[in-house]
């Protein structure tokens, strides 16, 4: 549904996006991560046929973005970084305006406007001027605009920023339900928990380049290595643990130790057998949690060197 091949964009010699090749299938969510200025917004703008690629190509639903920009724009729903709402209009007028621009029949337009405004809890405020809306309400209205024409591809830039937890959850539910409707979704976000929860795959951009692409688990493996396991003991042990060859002890406390098996989870039976055989009182074996945030930061550290620590408070 969404495909790019060597997609690049330069602004007066500065490459905002370089050789980006990726594919997002129907029913898939791809989270686009990266620091500020990594090229996420530029990518979204190229995919929505607003910016013309300097090099490479991109397709939405089979339509090339430079050859068929109007068709591409009718297939994508875009939540822009800046919501760009007309503050002197009411929510109803605003959505009706965009429904007419997207050439929706009046009945379908009325039905969809009602559906999304109700879904986001804005229906009762539909006659209020947008200028009186809170930041979160504006965000939800902008999202309603992006979804109004039933787009096959969704490009969402920070969809839950400025939202209260309840609204953010609602939006995440909406995004998940859109995946089940076979839409292809690109989600640009700095919220790594959200990315981990929603995304099927993650792409990390840095200085315009794609530096990592894979499922959250693949990315964690890539950035943090194979999973580690904590062995919790019933009583303290200070002698070296009797581990099979290939196992590494990463941390040892009197009542626990952290071990990295060579083949990950599959090696756990061997680990347990060895410890129990040597009479170690194992009460629990658990995976040390690896978050996407850890993986992302590790990757960034690898790319840019160690990040500076915060100055100590006096």
């Amino acid at each position: 549904m969404i495909r790019t091949e060597g997609l690049s964009k330069s602004f007066e010699g500065f490459w905002a996006v370089r050789d980006l090749t990726l594919e997002v299938h129907p029913g898939e969510i791809l989270a686009l991560l990266g620091p500020n200025g990594a090229g996420k917004t530029t990518t979204v703008r190229m995919l929505s046929a607003v910016l013309r690629p300097s090099r490479g190509r991109a397709w939405i639903g089979g339509y090339e973005v430079t050859q068929s920009p109007d068709e591409v724009r009718s297939l994508v729903g875009v939540l822009t970084e800046q919501h760009g709402l007309y503050t002197r209009m009411t929510a109803l007028e605003y959505l009706t305006f965009f429904a007419r621009l997207y050439d929706l029949p009046p009945e379908a337009s009325a039905r969809r406007i009602r559906h999304w405004l109700t879904f986001f809890g804005l229906w009762e405020f539909r006659h209020q001027r947008i200028g009186n809306y809170s930041k979160g309400m504006r965000q939800k209205l902008a999202l309603s605009r992006a979804l109004l024409h039933h787009p096959q591809a969704l490009l969402l830039d920070e969809p839950t920023s400025a939202m209260d937890p309840e609204s953010a959850r609602r939006v995440r539910q909406a995004i998940a339900s859109l995946r089940s409707e076979e839409r292809a979704i690109i989600l640009c976000t700095h919220n790594l928990v959200e990315a981990e929860t929603l995304a099927d795959r993650i792409a990390i951009l840095d200085q315009g380049r794609l530096v990592a692409l894979g499922t959250p688990e693949e990315l964690k493996d890539q950035a943090l290595g194979p999973p580690r396991f904590r062995v919790v003991l019933a009583e303290p042990r200070t002698d070296p643990p009797p581990l099979p060859p290939g196992f590494q002890v990463e941390e040892q406390q009197p009542t626990s130790l952290v071990v990295r098996p060579p083949r990950g989870e599959a090696d756990n039976p061997r680990l347990l057998r060895a410890l129990l055989h040597a009479g170690w009182p194992v009460t629990r074996l658990e995976e040390v949690p690896r978050t996407l945030e850890d993986a992302y930061l590790a990757l960034m550290e690898r790319l840019h060197g160690k990040t500076e620590s915060l100055p100590q408070a006096a």
């Binding site: 046929a49 607003v50 724009r73 009718s74 875009v78 822009t80 760009g84 007309y86 621009l101 902008a142």
Partner: peptide
């Protein structure tokens, strides 16, 4: 200046 131009530019109009 008001950042309202982008949604218009993304709309399928010539």
């Amino acid at each position: 200046e008001r950042n309202t131009i982008e949604p218009l530019l993304i709309a399928p109009i010539q």
